[in-house]
Each structure stands twice: as structure tokens, then as C-alpha cells.
Design a protein around this nucleic acid. Structure first.
Lengths: 198, 198
DNA sequence: TTGTTTACCGAACATTCGGTCAGTTGACAA
DNA sequence: TTGTCAACTGACCGAATGTTCGGTAAACAA
């Protein structure tokens, strides 16, 4: 047969991608453990069993979602702007980039930040996340060592507070209204780098 | 023996208080929905049914825990130091006090910050929490109005970032090691009020 | 000794859970 | 018209869930 369909078949209904994106929204609303496959089915407008046509199961949905968040973070730390230049500039770039990723992949990062290690899938994600955290901690330590950030606060503590601020964005950010990613990163850097007091 | 027990009878085993404190620890480790009554029973060293002798059920445990966190926050906003004086000073006091409460009642506040509204209990807690958030938002707005914090960032956004930083402490703080509540509040205020960059 | 109370166990309850599977539907191709 | 196949349904499974309940061992009181 010679190319029966020039365009892709484009069948009705769902595919693995749409199932994932809707599932992650529900996970973030009710929590992963608080979400049943019945909940997902209702949100998708199909029966429970239809979900298993597209994806292998609940935990695989979680794993794919977490990878999406983590892949973004690891692409960032591989970038040249995160690995060369003055530490304070690299730190600023990483913070700005983190805000970007957090917003671009908001539901996936939100899910990642709530993982507690209840399964091997979650534990693996936690370990990858810790690796990212260690990268950032090294960066802050370097910036402290070359004297470009205040010396009167422990760098490890600084790292936690700084990225605590970044990560807290997932608790309230709504893409439809409010600041853009760049505006948000600007405001966050103003507070954390220069302080909010006049 | 004369006076067999001068102190209160001191019966063996658990009471509602010890069940609550252990339960909240498990809730924070595995998540509320991820915790089964069997998990709790194991942590308490009794069988599932023994728990129901001390407390009415799982959701009541959650409700009591959330009240403990929220009561602390509302005691704070009722204090004179939160309601009179220069706005920037009140804000600093509220931030410092919040760090204190967060650490003094760490497991309870941690649980509160993870509530998603999956039940009436959770929704009620969320509403009380929003009331607290509104109080802080007003405070930041006042400080912005009298010109004591930087005018180039929206006060509502500032509030979220500031208390995002405070609340993020629950994600990593361990009472046994690390900074004290006062040291931690100092470091946090240095970063958010004066900035980490030299 | 007998009775009462406290703190608990073990078995069972109905319900919900994640997941399976044989079949049905409907769009499209031949 | 017939056949194919992606997409889905509905009935069902065993396991796990939160909760209830009848019973009971130990401590103490009378």
C-alpha cells in the first residue's frame, strides 16, 4: 500500500500525553495518594479501564510526571551559564532559570515538590532532586567563598531559604493571571539578593 | 506501702495526646492520605482497633493537629505587637514570631501547610489559614504605603514570597541539629529584609 | 473474693482501591 | 459489504481501607 494516510490518523479521544497532563492536574488538586483512578476517569470523561489502554498504571503516571520536572532541572545545570563565570552570576542565572522551569512545567514541578518517598518511584525522584539541591548548594558556597554574598549566614542555610522561596511559588502561582515568569524572577531576586527593606 | 501512688495513676500505654503526636509524625512522613490506620498502629505499637479507644478516628486526628497549628498563628495576630506600632516593625515581629511557632509546633504546622481541601476538615483549616494570610498581606501593604519597603514590587507578591520563605522551613528543618529558632529568624530576616548580596 | 475500669486484641464489617479482561463500538479501508 | 483496529465499556478480582464490636487480661477498689 502506498501511504494511505498522509496526515497522522488523529483519532478521537485521549492519548498518553493528554491522560498525563490531566492526571497531573488532579494529582495536584487532591494529592497523589488522595487521587483514585476513578477520580482520574471522571476528569478524563471515560471509565477507569480506558485509562489502562493509554498508560500502564497510576504509578507510571507519577513517574512520567516527575521525570518531566527533573529533566528540566538537569538540562539547566548542564548549561554553560550554570557552570562557568562568577559564582554570583551563575547563581542568579540558576535562580532565574529555576523560576522559568517551575512556571513552564508548573504542574510537574508542583508534584515533584510534594513527593515524600512512599514508593521506589518517589524515592528515585527524591534522590535526583537531592542531586540538584547539592549542585545549587555548591554554587552558593562558591559565591560565599569569593565574598560576593554576605558572610554572616551559613551558605547551606542560605541555599535552603533561597530555594525555599523559589519552590514556594508552586503554592500559589496561577499562569492565567499575575506576573510573568520574568517579572516574578525579578521580584524574587530583588527580595532575596537586595532585600525588601529600603 | 503507704501512699501507693502520690502522683496521678499514670496508667500504662497511650492517651489521646501521645496518639496525636505520634500520628502527626507519621502523617508528615507518608502524607495524610498515604497513611493507613495500620501504619499508625505499627508506629504506636498497638493494633488498629486500640487507636479507636483513644480517638474517634483518622479525620479527628487531622482536625486536632491542624487546630494546634492554627491556634498558634491566631494567638500571634491577636498580640499587641502585631497590631500597633510602625508597620515594618510589626511585620518583622510577625515574621520572627511565625518562625518561632513553626518550629515550636513543627509537625502540626508542617501538616497544615500540606492540606489540600480534600474533606470538610481540610477545607475549614484552609479557610482559617487564608484568614491569617490576609492579615499578613494587610501588614505588608501598610508597610508599603508608609514607604518603609521597596515600592517596585507588588505588596501582594511580596507577601507570598516572604511567607513562602518562612513556610519552606518545614521542608527541611530538623530540631535536633541546625540553627535555633532565633538564629533561623535572624538569617531569614537578613536575606528577605536586607538581601544576601553584598 | 468480687466487681469495676482501663487499655487493649482479634475477627469481622462494608467500602474503596488499583488493576484485568472479554467484549463492543464506530471510523475507516478494501 | 466485509474486515480491521484503535478506543473504549462494564463486569469483575483480590487486596487494602477505615471502622465496629465482642471479648479479655491486668490493675485496682470494695
Amino acid at each position: 500500500m502506498a501511504t494511505p494516510t498522509p496526515t497522522r490518523p488523529r483519532k478521537r479521544g485521549h492519548d498518553p500525553e493528554s491522560v498525563l497532563s490531566i492526571a497531573v492536574e488532579v494529582f495536584n488538586t487532591r494529592g497523589y495518594d488522595g487521587t483514585s483512578m476513578e477520580d482520574l476517569a471522571r476528569a478524563l470523561g471515560v471509565t477507569k479501564s480506558a485509562i489502562y489502554y493509554h498508560v500502564p498504571g497510576k504509578e507510571q503516571l507519577l513517574a512520567r510526571a516527575l521525570d518531566r520536572a527533573l529533566d528540566g532541572l538537569f538540562e539547566m545545570v548542564a548549561d554553560e551559564r550554570a557552570t562557568s563565570g562568577p559564582a554570583i552570576d551563575r547563581l542568579e542565572w540558576v535562580v532565574r532559570r529555576s523560576v522559568r522551569i517551575l512556571i513552564d512545567r508548573l504542574p510537574y514541578v508542583t508534584l515533584l515538590l510534594r513527593v515524600r518517598g512512599n514508593s521506589q518511584t518517589e524515592q528515585a525522584a527524591l534522590e535526583r532532586r537531592r542531586e540538584f539541591d547539592r549542585f545549587v548548594a555548591r554554587l552558593v558556597k562558591e559565591a560565599a567563598a569569593d565574598g560576593s554574598i554576605r558572610p554572616d549566614v551559613d551558605p547551606a542555610l542560605m541555599t535552603r531559604l533561597l530555594f525555599g522561596t523559589v519552590n514556594s511559588i508552586t503554592e500559589w502561582y496561577q499562569p492565567t493571571r499575575g506576573a510573568s515568569a520574568d517579572d516574578l524572577a525579578d521580584a524574587l531576586l530583588k527580595m532575596t539578593f537586595d532585600g525588601l527593606r529600603i
